[in-house]
Design a protein around this nucleic acid. Structure first.
Lengths: 322, 322
DNA sequence: TTGAAAGCGTTACCAA
DNA sequence: TTGGTAACGCTTTCAA
């Protein structure tokens, strides 16, 4: 493994000049540059990244913290890796499994200068703790983080939920049930608000028994369907927290011989591969755009210049379940 | 940000001693250790990883190269991240999108000492090119790499395919079609071999028209089903290259009103979430175990000691399609 | 058990 | 345009 020093010696120039060639400085004569480049190629030389990082004080790496990896997160990740890559940054992934110790390790890596910045997808640490690492580098979050120092790229679900509701209402469905996620989350609150506003706009009653909470998984969806069947006034449609839930409801409906969408319309959320496969109508969550924005939020600190945020919007993927 | 040098000055000891404390050397008096640790804590000191990496010549990072991310790869990834983590290694992901330039960049990162080793999941580069980087660090592959210097953790599909066949045969299915993937791949060859041996063992005929090739996706699966329906002697069961194909066949069968498994039994491969959701019988591919083994193959070079490989086996997840 | 000093491979400042 | 040299922050001999 040849080093910059060796290249300098072989070429007869100083390390400084070799370094200038490496970094594309204009203060090198074309002649010199050429000679040095030739020797580099001949010696199969590449700079040692640790040395560069130590010297420059930057690693060109961004850490991404997530509790687990699922399809939606994957999309986000892909988008982010791509955006960061375009600007010369690599992404390193910290999967924590919800272990706060592992999360802390990732945060420490910002302090220890292994990464130049941090992107938090999902985490269990308190916003306060996370924010206390802001002094070591930029940190942005996907989910809303409820702290002035940690910007977020999450979108208000109100718009997306309204989109789905308008779709159902326009098709004549009026008795619409909701399978919400975490009751206390801002997302659930926005969705509920959207629901109540839409129903009010159409002068339709809001039935509290059509609110399901803490519904996350396929199994949860299956339970919801069975519960729906037992209701005296059975809903004609159900709006789900995510596509997994919708998939669970759909497959259980099939098992129970309930026609979809004749007897029950189903709308998912996120537009994952699963929804596509199973033909589920769903709200398309522009995660790739959010990922791009996540990088743009980091840009000022990382690139020294701001990048304008992309405007994003939900849209609807209409399939066979409505 | 305090440095080791500052800790040394504050404690009155030398940098060497502070470093010894950091690295848990036994040649430090308990008293000294305590004092130094106290000052470190007080100063909120953590070592700079770039400096450590440069000095030690190792980064404790492993690069993972993949063209794209899907569910199966995700499982593998998770398993590997977990295994590597247990031994103090972080994983950094290179998603190449099949771009050989990006792949090269990942390989170069081994040379540039950004990573200590490389794990290849899927790649387009020639085994020869990849192997030429072996001199910079250990490299292992998931898929079979056809080069003596690049070990692989892929499993022979013969056993898994045989498992599925035995299952079908024991349930009385005799006319069994195959949806194979890439015709030239070793996997396909093993599967075909398994098929022919199993049929021979049961004295059943092998019908060439029940061989489908280059079947990968959901859409491919849908096409296969339509084609199956047109055959004069329609098969009673179909064995698929992966769960996506099985899902495609299943959903198209439903659309066509073909009863599953009464009129057609379906078996997938890999046991992904999709198979679970749709209730598809499938062969469980122990990817997490393979990931663990991938790390164990890197271990000699990384840890300086060998770790025994885990014995792995396919198993069957029997669901509603058989 | 401790310390001095020479690396590790770059970058960046100051002169020339 | 070039060179000398001090950082960058740690580890690792070699002595004491």
């Amino acid at each position: 493994m040849s080093t910059l020093d060796q290249i300098a010696k072989l070429s007869g120039f100083s390390k400084a000049t070799v370094s200038r060639v490496l970094n594309g400085s204009r203060h090198v004569s074309p002649d010199t540059r050429e000679k040095i480049l030739a020797i580099m190629k001949e010696q199969d030389y590449v700079p040692n990244r640790n040395a560069v990082s130590l010297s420059k004080g930057r690693t060109q790496q961004i850490g991404m913290i997530t509790m687990n990896l699922n399809e939606l997160i994957l999309h986000f990740m892909n988008g982010f890796v791509e955006s960061a890559g375009r600007h010369g940054f690599q992404t390193i992934i910290y999967t924590t499994g919800g272990d706060s110790q592992k999360e802390l390790q990732a945060l420490e890596d910002l302090k220890r200068k292994r990464v130049d910045g941090l992107l938090i997808l999902t985490s269990v640490s308190s916003p306060g703790l996370i924010a206390s690492y802001r002094k070591y580098g930029p940190i942005v979050s996907w989910q809303r983080m409820d702290h002035p120092d940690i910007p977020s790229v999450a979108m208000n679900q109100f718009e997306g939920y309204t989109l789905a509701l308008e779709h159902l209402l326009s098709r004549g469905y009026t008795r619409i049930a909701n399978a919400f996620g975490r009751p206390s989350s801002i997302n659930t609150q926005s969705r509920r608000e959207a629901y109540e506003q839409a129903m009010a706009a159409y002068s339709l009653p809001v039935d509290e028994q059509w609110y399901y909470s803490s519904i996350y998984s396929i199994a949860d969806g299956e339970r919801v369907l069975r519960s729906l069947l037992e209701q005296q006034e059975r809903p004609e449609a159900v709006l789900c927290a995510n596509d997994l839930v919708a998939a669970g409801i759909l497959s259980e409906a099939r098992r129970q011989g309930l026609g979809v969408p004749e007897n029950l319309a189903i709308v998912g959320f996120d537009d994952t591969e699963l929804a596509k496969t199973m033909g589920i109508t769903t709200v398309r969550n522009p995660v790739a755009g959010q990922a791009e924005n996540a990088f743009r939020l980091l840009a000022p600190a990382l690139l020294g210049k701001a990048l304008a945020l992309q405007p994003l919007a939900f849209s609807l993927a209409i399939r066979e379940t409505t």
